[in-house]
Simulated scan of single mutants.
Amino acid sequence: MDTTLTIILGIVAMLLPLVVGRLVWKRFDKWFGRNDQAYMDSLEYFLKKIGFTALVAFILLWVGISLVFNGNGAALA
Score class of each variant (00 low, 15 high):
1 M>T: 15
1 M>L: 07
1 M>R: 11
2 D>S: 13
3 T>A: 15
4 T>A: 15
5 L>W: 08
7 I>Y: 04
8 I>C: 02
9 L>N: 06
10 G>E: 00
10 G>A: 13
10 G>I: 12
12 V>N: 03
13 A>C: 07
16 L>W: 13
17 P>A: 04
17 P>G: 01
21 G>S: 05
23 L>Y: 06
24 V>D: 00
25 W>A: 07
25 W>V: 01
25 W>N: 10
25 W>R: 07
27 R>D: 05
27 R>C: 03
29 D>F: 11
31 W>M: 09
32 F>Q: 11
33 G>V: 02
37 Q>F: 11
37 Q>T: 13
37 Q>M: 10
40 M>K: 13
41 D>M: 09
41 D>I: 03
43 L>K: 09
44 E>M: 09
44 E>N: 10
45 Y>M: 06
46 F>R: 11
48 K>S: 07
48 K>W: 10
48 K>Q: 09
48 K>H: 12
49 K>R: 15
50 I>M: 10
50 I>Y: 09
51 G>V: 07
53 T>A: 02
53 T>G: 02
54 A>P: 04
54 A>L: 11
56 V>S: 00
57 A>N: 02
57 A>S: 15
58 F>T: 15
61 L>Q: 13
62 W>A: 15
63 V>E: 01
63 V>H: 02
65 I>S: 12
65 I>L: 15
67 L>C: 11
68 V>H: 01
68 V>W: 02
70 N>M: 13
71 G>K: 08
75 A>C: 05
76 L>G: 02
